[in-house]
Design a protein around this nucleic acid. Sequence first.
DNA 1: CCAAATTTGTAGCCGAGGCTACATTTCGCA
DNA 2: TGCGAAATGTAGCCTCGGCTACAAATTTGG
Lengths: 144, 144
Amino acid sequence: MSETDPTQIKGFNRARERAARALLEDYVEMISDLAAEFGEARITEIAARLGVAHPTATKAVSRLKREGLAVSRPYRGVFLTEAGEALAESVRARHRTVVALLLAIGVPEEVAELDAEGIEHHVSRRTLEAFEAYLARSERGEKG
Amino acid sequence: MSETDPTQIKGFNRARERAARALLEDYVEMISDLAAEFGEARITEIAARLGVAHPTATKAVSRLKREGLAVSRPYRGVFLTEAGEALAESVRARHRTVVALLLAIGVPEEVAELDAEGIEHHVSRRTLEAFEAYLARSERGEKG
DNA sequence: CCAAATTTGTAGCCGAGGCTACATTTCGCA
DNA sequence: TGCGAAATGTAGCCTCGGCTACAAATTTGG
Ligand SMILES: [Mn+2]
Ligand SMILES: [Mn+2]
Ligand SMILES: [Mn+2]
Ligand SMILES: [Mn+2]
């Protein structure tokens, strides 16, 4: 058997790890959005906005709590810890950059928003930096 | 409660659906690669290249068979159906386009290959078309 | 202020996708 | 040709992330 390509295996493993973190990232970002809008994030509202049943959101929040990203008390709202808020901020920034990049490439706005919701979780720091550099260049008129 | 944004919900739902198909797509592409290289895809080799234990690959292949994408007999190789081979071809093409786009944007080669393994599964047809159009433009020297 | 509506919690089901341990079959070669 | 090694199958375990059904708490308004 020909030797297996280590870069390829690494790619699959990284994709799996990132897919596992994707849900968690979306919840954290959503909770942060709701906190900004209403002062707190309620389970029902989190579930509604993510398009899942409320027990699904409850379970996800308990995973967030286990990871030290959120806190909550029974029948009360969910709040992010400092770590959670920091994660939310970076996730939000990355989301914006991915959408901007897609738009700059020529992806229609509605499609860009939809695709970004999945793509964002697989964009590494290095790739994000490349996106930002590209956007900076094209804004300076170097014609995207 | 302010009305929930339907586009956002749609984005989350689509991201979930695509994440669920991602594994299946990678298996099909891998089986196709191995068929081209060795004439058949063996469970052990599939597992090794995807970086998983062999029973994990076995279970995935039975899902592929259930979906009508592959066929196999006990202790023999795995083969794609016509539908499976068609899927493999489109997955492979999309993978190449995503890598090319990342490189054109300025992502380092190694990083591009790693990130593409996850990103590819969330690129819709419309976005793929935009990528192709962009690549065609920049190849014609319009300076990306 | 109390009853109804709403929200939240909890139990329990499912399939996907990981794993280890072990059984069985096939293959390669001495 | 037969035996040991390698490949494959199978059983059974786990977590995650969906769901429904139902119980309990909270909020609301008449
Ligand atoms: Mn997302
Ligand atoms: Mn997002
Ligand atoms: Mn992939
Ligand atoms: Mn791929």
